[in-house]
Design a protein around this nucleic acid. Sequence first.
DNA 1: CCTGATTTTTGATTTAAATCACAGCCTTTC
DNA 2: GAAAGGCTGTGATTTAAATCAAAAATCAGG
Lengths: 224, 224
Amino acid sequence: MGKVPVFSSLSGQNLASVAALIRRREYPKGEILFAEGDRLDDLVIVNAGSVKAYTIAPDGREQILYVFSEGDFFGERNLFDGRTAPYTLQALEEVKTCAFSREDFRALIADHPDIALAVMEALQTRIARMENALRSIGVRSVDARVSALMLEFAEKYGKPVPEGVLIRLPLSREGMANYLGIARETVSRKLGQLEAEGVIRSISGKSLLILDREALRQSAGVLS
Amino acid sequence: MGKVPVFSSLSGQNLASVAALIRRREYPKGEILFAEGDRLDDLVIVNAGSVKAYTIAPDGREQILYVFSEGDFFGERNLFDGRTAPYTLQALEEVKTCAFSREDFRALIADHPDIALAVMEALQTRIARMENALRSIGVRSVDARVSALMLEFAEKYGKPVPEGVLIRLPLSREGMANYLGIARETVSRKLGQLEAEGVIRSISGKSLLILDREALRQSAGVLS
DNA sequence: CCTGATTTTTGATTTAAATCACAGCCTTTC
DNA sequence: GAAAGGCTGTGATTTAAATCAAAAATCAGG
């Protein structure tokens, strides 16, 4: 429990009192935790596994907004106004969560200003990531966005190995396409291109190896 | 001062003590408040006027990330890690600001949990807006994005008049293009199209009238 | 109020990525 | 372990928006 960043400031005794407030749950792969519009009063922290957050556009397209994994949380909007899930949350693999009620969490913040700061910091990190995403839209080249996604995955899911960084992809090609807002075929093509350039190496459908991180950084920066 | 949402919870006496901490400044139109990378230790609140926040991509493109106006703040990242401006901030018109040092603001939060909540709420609102922006990327049609921008402006800068909502645009066509990450010419064309459809009416270069808000909402939602 | 300069609009052409179409792969399941 | 189904890769074609190129409109300042 202490590994959740938001509570890292708590001492053992306080941790125990916090632990009394939480409700734990588990979900099998593919299960919908909450559908867009469902009532959602809690702040939910992901303890294990990963969750995709998406909306379905009226034309049927799925737009993935986040991939939450260990240590991430959602439902923070419920601390204030909204009381419904702003997007559908679905388990990408077996997932364990713990949840606080709105009231408990607000009380917790009032008692422990450090937690408020930690939550603000987490929100801030999220904003910084989204700012980056918006930046790379301006640089509207798809190459750049695919490279940026590889870097994001490397950071979140990568394991260093002698030749580079090994990534177990949390999303399928189609999932990546829906995350980036581009076509499935384009993801294939761009990934193929990166492999041809020796920047990555495909291990299996779901794993790949990053060989040249610097090249990714450069291409994520600009590129025509 | 009390009109700044972040401090709305403070009573008169507390307000006075807060007021003692702030440093006020004014900037003429066009002035750069902070350049990307500049040291920035403060949390800065915009009291009057509007400010654009942008970065220059390596290919020379300007990508506008935010247009801050009365009641908005920036520099919140400095409460935690960063201590430099993550983007350039430039006055779009005469601007008045007030600033707190990192230390003062952290102390303030410790004393007044309500302020922490208010800041979290403001961050949360920002995230919600960015989520919308990301959503409309998936729906990658440019029409949708232009419509969404008109709605955003209507909400932030619009004044109701008998025929509809009158907007004094804070950005030029080029500015809007840099905000949306599309070409200047495309903004012209799409705006012209909206006018031809009777959805908006151009008053002068810098003002326009929204006649059919519902049509905008619909087109911002999807549209092929 | 006129002049020059910047911004904006409009049209023609190019281009990157979407879409369409289909073949080969890899699972997953019975 | 074989068949069915969904995923993925590749080529051909279409399309929306970028770019290029002027012309028109707006604005600022004298």
